[in-house]
Design a protein around this nucleic acid. Structure first.
Lengths: 191, 191
DNA sequence: ATATTTCTTTACCAAATGGTAAAAAATGCA
DNA sequence: TGCATTTTTTACCATTTGGTAAAGAAATAT
């Protein structure tokens, strides 16, 4: 289970684990693959699982009032794909998580994810730190409303240089809050 | 100490407290007042305290690369005024927290805030839940880059109806990512 | 390989927003 | 109250962005 190692490395950034704890984490998880376009989780349902991205890029997205498909965030390697908050609160999720490329994920069911607190001493602390870092990064790396479209695009290139090359431009356009025509124009002017 | 009660009520939303725990929380805190325009915390320094807003409105803000004063968030009654993440990580804060109106706050020094884990059993859990809710609300109630300026303004009115009436329009303008002239025009067109 | 589909760019004009300036209104202070 | 300061509105024009349409490029499937 070599790919599990990237998950363990990730978790070790948030707290220590002994050998048996590492084993129980590995035993709780399963690996899955998603084809480009497939959904990891869907709006309208209570979230049932937490994923860790081993390979590929996903996006969190929803349909706005006008029915447009809006990308709220990108999720690439070495980060969590989950609706953290609605997972704990058992509330219905308001957004989809969709694979932008073929993906490999390590997946925990909700019960497995939360059950780890029985076998991993610091699990609650680790879990909290992970969720907080995810939320923090999203807010810090995300587009800022007070910047104009060009600046938001340049920031995006800095924060997600690899994502840029791997997902369709229209996803990036809605993420940055511009039409794809505008984004195309902006790219032209910058080059 | 009647005003302490609003703080205790707030904390009780995140976990249970017994009588002695309530007493130790009250004993750790002090009350302060801020005049309109005064700063609760400043950029460039490691955050030293956590505040709970009893009365008034504050804003989190920073100067962007062009030197413009940008409001990133509003903090009104019954919420926490703090740079949560840099508080724990001991990192230098990148933004100010400034009183938009005369304010009454209940304040914990960093040592007091963290020391409560010794006297309040569920303190770490409570603290984490509070921080997560704050981050979540900011992301959910904040302006969305994919909406146009009018929609962002209308959303703001829904989410912060009282703040609208208590802070200068220019703070709201930078929060919504428009000039105050544009916001003035938008308000005119809506009425 | 060819056809089909999807994605990206370009063009045109309308609409929204920014920048500068100044007037009007509201607020605070002596 | 009257004066000074701050805040908000209005106006003008330049710039940016959106909407519609279509062409070109790239990816995918047959």
């Amino acid at each position: 289970m070599l790919t599990m190692d990237s998950l363990i490395d990730y978790i070790l950034r948030f707290g220590d684990l002994n050998t048996s704890e590492i084993a129980s984490i590995k035993a709780s998880a399963t690996q899955i693959e998603l084809k480009k376009g497939e959904y990891f989780s869907e709006a309208g349902a209570v979230p049932r699982q937490v994923g860790f991205v081993v390979q590929g890029v996903l996006r969190g997205c929803y349909y706005n009032q006008a029915g447009e498909d809006i990308t709220r965030c990108f999720i690439a390697e070495d980060s969590l794909a989950a609706d953290y908050l609605n997972l704990e609160s058992h509330q219905i999720s308001t957004e989809y998580i969709q694979a932008c490329t073929d993906c490999k994920l390590i997946v925990f069911s909700k019960a497995q994810w939360e059950g780890l607190s029985h076998t991993v001493a610091a699990w609650d602390t680790i879990k909290n730190k992970m969720v907080q870092l995810c939320m923090y990064q999203k807010s810090r790396k995300g587009p800022v409303v007070s910047q104009d479209a060009s600046s938001r695009y340049l920031e995006f290139l800095k924060n997600y240089p690899d994502v840029m090359l791997r997902v369709p431009l229209r996803y990036i356009a809605s993420y940055l809050g511009v039409t794809q025509q505008s984004l195309s124009r902006i790219r032209k002017n910058i080059t």
